[in-house]
């Protein structure tokens, strides 16, 4: 019996590029705690990310990881999880990566229901490119030179999109509550299928007002397995409610089963062999 793994065993010696006080530190802590809680051998875990501040996270942990291209974290995680169902696959990235350039993949990953956890570290801003509006940015935010009079678009509502796309496990958490987030990640890891957790993660550099999140988040979601109930709950949601919103009876993705009888593919090509 090997020694007990602690959260520290999942942290690498690479120093994060994140600003001091970044919400993503809380998510890094929560992830290491969740893996320690499940005593998951790091070599059995793959952390897949896109591009952006939050997508740097795999380098700060000890499991296998892949820091891919912008927006394609879910396809890469899907390929890995389908080809290697024995691994624990955790996909992650920011709100721009997941909902803008990768928005199409988000909907289809929800539909496909391949077994993985998807964490979106949502700060409603593009931080790595120094502060532009993201899909989840409020309409009237004028903090970017790129959209100086606001976005002129309503903010993207990821939980509704996830529900409408058939996502089986939908939650929202706050990086300022790493223990609660760790517990939710454990639940998601235990759930067979695609699980989505939107994590409110303040950007103290480009959205300093988000430092006030801790005063306004509230743990009010009551989990339901009825999709219409979950959708109705979101109609008057302020976007600051945390907890598990929706959890469907598990029905994870299954590939095409191996046929019981199958002739060698060459046989079908042989002249006269089809008779």
């Amino acid at each position: 019996m090997s020694e007990t793994l602690t959260a520290r065993d999942y942290k690498s010696d690479v120093h994060p590029v994140w600003c001091p006080g970044c919400g993503d530190f809380g998510i890094l802590n929560a992830l290491t705690k969740a893996l320690a809680a499940r005593q998951q051998p790091p070599e059995r875990v793959a952390l897949i990310s896109g591009i952006g501040c939050s997508s740097r996270l795999p380098a700060y942990m000890t499991p296998y990881g892949f820091h891919g291209v912008h927006g394609r974290v879910l396809p890469m995680a899907t390929g890995l999880a389908v080809a290697r169902p024995d691994l624990t696959v955790i996909a992650m990235g920011g709100d721009g990566d997941g909902f803008s350039i990768g928005g199409n993949h988000f909907m289809h990953a929800c539909r496909r229901n391949v077994n993985m956890v998807y964490l979106v570290m949502d700060n409603a801003v593009y931080g790595m490119t120094k502060g532009q509006a993201s899909p989840t940015t409020q309409t009237d935010w004028t903090g970017s030179k790129l959209t100086p009079t606001g976005t002129h678009m309503p903010a993207f509502r990821p939980l509704e999109i996830a529900l409408a796309s058939g996502c089986a496990f939908v939650a929202r958490e706050f990086s300022g509550n790493p223990n609660g987030l760790a517990q939710r990640i454990v639940e998601a890891l235990d759930y067979p299928g695609f699980t989505f957790i939107q994590v409110l993660s303040p950007c103290i550099t480009y959205r300093p007002e988000q430092m006030g999140y801790k005063k306004i988040v509230h743990e009010d979601f009551e989990p339901t397995s009825i999709r219409t109930e979950a959708m109705a709950r979101l109609l008057d949601d302020d976007g600051m409610t945390t907890g598990l919103l929706f959890r469907a009876p598990p029905a994870p993705w299954q590939g095409d089963p191996a046929p019981e009888a199958h002739r060698a593919p060459e046989r079908a090509l042989v002249v006269g062999g089809g008779a």
Binding site: A46, I48, F66, G68, V69, G71, R72, L74, P75, M76, A77, T78, G79, L80, A81, V82, A83, R84, L87, N104, H105, M107, H108, R112, G255, D256, P257, A258, P259, H262
Partner: peptide, 29 residues
Amino acid sequence: LPAADGDLVQAEDELAAVNMCIGASFGGV
């Protein structure tokens, strides 16, 4: 593929298809 114990996934676009391949190959397949 299924008879060879392989998997095929229909992707949502070509961007997804090629990144799925990279993910699976990262897994050794």
